[in-house]
Design a protein around this nucleic acid. Sequence first.
DNA 1: GTAGGTGCAAAGATTTTGCAGTGCT
DNA 2: AGCACTGCAAAATCTTTGCACCTAC
Lengths: 153, 153
Amino acid sequence: MAAATQAWGERLRAQGYRITPQRQFVLEAVIDLGHATPEEILAWIQTRSPGVNLSTVYRALEVLEEVGLVTHAHLGHGAPTYHAVDGEVHVHLVCAGCHDVDSVPAQMAQGFVDALERDRGFATDIGHMTVQGLCRRCQEAGKPTRSRGVDRT
Amino acid sequence: MAAATQAWGERLRAQGYRITPQRQFVLEAVIDLGHATPEEILAWIQTRSPGVNLSTVYRALEVLEEVGLVTHAHLGHGAPTYHAVDGEVHVHLVCAGCHDVDSVPAQMAQGFVDALERDRGFATDIGHMTVQGLCRRCQEAGKPTRSRGVDRT
DNA sequence: GTAGGTGCAAAGATTTTGCAGTGCT
DNA sequence: AGCACTGCAAAATCTTTGCACCTAC
């Protein structure tokens, strides 16, 4: 997270944005939480600054994403989760059973990404990629891949 | 689509569900449209049966997914798109520039999927996988990967 | 001083749910 | 005839927007 925290102010300034405590809080929350929805980010922030508003979180995330300090991925359902761009690009694994999120290094998908580039000329945004499936624990628990009214992905 | 249409009734009956014209319409719409959101499915249906309600579409999709006749994938933003399970499993490519959706055979991702299984014990639901990026056309158009207020993924 | 930013409240968009009537089996 | 299904309307989510005030620069 070093790179992200050190010059985060400059990144904003360079694009004509201002540095505000709210934006700093949002960035810290994202870094600290790892994966977080806007709601979770708000909750984190409110433990130290209760007055902050949810719409501010949304707007801050938009700006921080714009300048490349955070990204988001769609983990299923309607929940976007944000995470810091801390150098290590990773792919998200979402379990349909327990909804846990795991991350794997982007290079595990390199072969696939290269194939897409070669075959389709498609430039993959690896960090945005989400893989749905069942984690080891849920497989062992014998959960079916899809069960009525439970799959909220 | 042969397999899907031939015995679709049995699939429902087998799980204790009933066969209704609305469900047939929804299935036909999904097969015909290829990729479709609930709204699009409703629009398709209403050209031949105006009375059908959106909530019925949602409920029908839930049931059809339950019995394995359709699946959905998250193409970004909050938009789930449904498609028929017609034998050919595929991965979705979504362009962040033009929002076009392309499909590639699941086996292109086989190496990646195997690696996840081996390394993490994670059982991937390939058909549910969505890859974000830029299609060839948008790359050539020189679109940036992310531009203010435009990336609705 | 003056953009840009924030908080608040209201508007949007999308999906779900309760209920009474309808129709598949 | 019984119970699942549908249509309708209201509720629940989640996200965006308008506006007046505030603040970083």
